[in-house]
Structure formats: structure tokens, C-alpha cells
């Protein structure tokens, strides 16, 4: 974004503009560095703790309650009886210690940037999708499309996850303590995915970049996914990362396998004739 930031309206001669129609001055202030106030991000104090029971609340009311508490500066919130409601804890855009004493439904903790979330139960589909930063730790199992389009932070499921976990990953780390289903790491772009159990078919299919570590077996690799040599850096990183969450590779991190992009699909037009069959 360097070029964008260095270009402002002065460079473009916009101050001499002779434009008809509605004025733009009310919202365009070229002197402001970014000129945006991002709404919905709060300053909170981790030592300010509270909890509430969500058993009789709708998901909308739970989310509104979380925002209300954050606006009051509460930095540690525990929610009892989340009842596997959908879309709980979405779009939290600041630091927060959030604990769900139970399970979440679909899209739990999606679109978040910064909070540390602990889920003591299970989660449904698309947990922490598009997470920007923070940590989400799930004690039991997770549904499909786990961490879809993840951009940053650590997403940890200590149990098994469904299919398409880490699909379209753009950064961050996903750790699966158990097994993962088919098409995991599909079209992965960046980031790391660690699978301590087995994986289903098409692991890492069409991955552009990023790294998948797998301690168990995989049914098949996807298109353009290839095994690569583990380095000492990989081993050190894995040991450190897993220890943070109290996890271990069953046969030691030295025996984990590493999957990366073959990069043959980066420029399809330049493939040799025989390589073009890759996409059939």
C-alpha cells in the first residue's frame, strides 16, 4: 500500500478541480492522514471482569451485550450457556478475553480482529472465518470450513474438524489436534496449517502458497500440492507453537511432513504441454 499512501490529492491536482454537482468537501479532507475513524473498536481493561448467562438471549442480544460491556471497558467476559447459537462473538475488533462456557453454532467468532477467545465446547461451520488477529482455542471438535479465509492470529481446535478447513487461508495459523476432512487448505494463499491427525482427500488442493504440516496420513494431495523437506526452522517453530497450546505431535515434530505449493499453476500459460494436464 506504500504507493497509495504516498499519493494524496495534492499529487493528483485535485485542489484545482472544477467539478460541478454535489460538494465533496464534507467528507473529503485530504489533510487527514487516513481520515477514517473505524467504528466499533473499544479500549478495554483485562482486569475488569464480568459474566452473563445467554440461555434466554437471542444471538443478536448476546452480541449487543458483548459490545455494550466492551464500551464500558470490560476486558474479560465469560458467557455461560451459549447454546450453540449462530454468529456469536462476531466482528469483535479490539483486545478482549472472551470465554464461552459451552458450544457455538455456525460462524462463531467470525470477522474478529484482536480478541483471545476460549471456547470450552464445540463449534459449528466456519468458526473464526476471516479472522484478522487474536487467538481462538476450541477444546472439542469443529465443523467444516474451519478458519475459512483466515488472515491472521492462531485458530486452534484440540479435537477433529470437518472438511475444507483452512480454505482460502491468507495468513495466520490453524492447528488441528485431531483429524481434518477433505479439501483442507484448498486454495491456501499464505499462513500455516498444522494437522496432528490424519487428513482427507485433496489436501492443499490448488494452494498458491503457505505451508501445511501433517503428523498423520493424508488420503491424497490436491492439484499442485507437493511434499517438501522439513527444515530445522520448521521443527523449531512447530515445537514452540504447539507448546503454547499444550499440544504435541504424536510421533514427534521431526516426523511431521510438510506440504507446499508446486507453483505450477501460478502462470498456467507458461506450462509445458504435458504439465497442462494438471488441471484435468
Amino acid at each position: 500500500m506504500a504507493e497509495l499512501e504516498s499519493r494524496d490529492s495534492h499529487d493528483m491536482g485535485m485542489h484545482d478541480e472544477q467539478l460541478a454537482g454535489r460538494t465533496q468537501q464534507i467528507f473529503f479532507k485530504p489533510s487527514a492522514e487516513e481520515n477514517f475513524t473505524y467504528p466499533g473498536a473499544y479500549e478495554v481493561d483485562f482486569d475488569k471482569e464480568t459474566e452473563f448467562d445467554a440461555a434466554d438471549m437471542s444471538n443478536k442480544d448476546v452480541n449487543l451485550k458483548i459490545r455494550d460491556l466492551m464500551s464500558q471497558g470490560y476486558g474479560s467476559i465469560t458467557i455461560r450457556n451459549p447454546g450453540a447459537k449462530h454468529s456469536l462473538g462476531v466482528c469483535i475488533l479490539n483486545r478482549l478475553q472472551l470465554t464461552f462456557d459451552g458450544s457455538l453454532g455456525y460462524f462463531g467468532c467470525g470477522l474478529i480482529d484482536g480478541p483471545n477467545v476460549h471456547i470450552k465446547g464445540r463449534v459449528g461451520w466456519s468458526c473464526a472465518e476471516n479472522m484478522m488477529a487474536g487467538t481462538v482455542v476450541i477444546e472439542k471438535n469443529a465443523g467444516s470450513t474451519f478458519g475459512a479465509a483466515l488472515r491472521g492470529g492462531d485458530l486452534v481446535c484440540k479435537g477433529d474438524v470437518g472438511s475444507r478447513s483452512g480454505i482460502d487461508m491468507k495468513g495466520g495459523t490453524i492447528i488441528v489436534g485431531g483429524k481434518t476432512g477433505m479439501n483442507s487448505g484448498f486454495m491456501m494463499q499464505r499462513g500455516r496449517m498444522v494437522i496432528l491427525g490424519d487428513a482427507g482427500q485433496n489436501l492443499g488442493d490448488s494452494m498458491y502458497d503457505g505451508t501445511i504440516y501433517i503428523a498423520g496420513k493424508y488420503e491424497s494431495l490436491g492439484v499442485d500440492a507437493v511434499e517438501s523437506e522439513m527444515t530445522q526452522t520448521d521443527i523449531d517453530w512447530l515445537e514452540k507453537k504447539l507448546s503454547i497450546y499444550g499440544l504435541k505431535a504424536p510421533n514427534g515434530v521431526e516426523n511431521v511432513r510438510k506440504i507446499v505449493s508446486g507453483k505450477k499453476l501460478w502462470n498456467y500459460d507458461n506450462l509445458e504441454p504435458s504439465e497442462k494436464k494438471l488441471i484435468l
Partner: peptide, 10 residues
């Protein structure tokens, strides 16, 4: 459900 999630987010 996704629509509902984005409504919650916004």
C-alpha cells in the same frame, strides 16, 4: 446464516 452473521457484524 452468513447473511445473519454479516448483519451482526454491521
Amino acid at each position: 446464516l452468513k447473511v445473519e452473521e454479516v448483519r451482526e457484524a454491521t
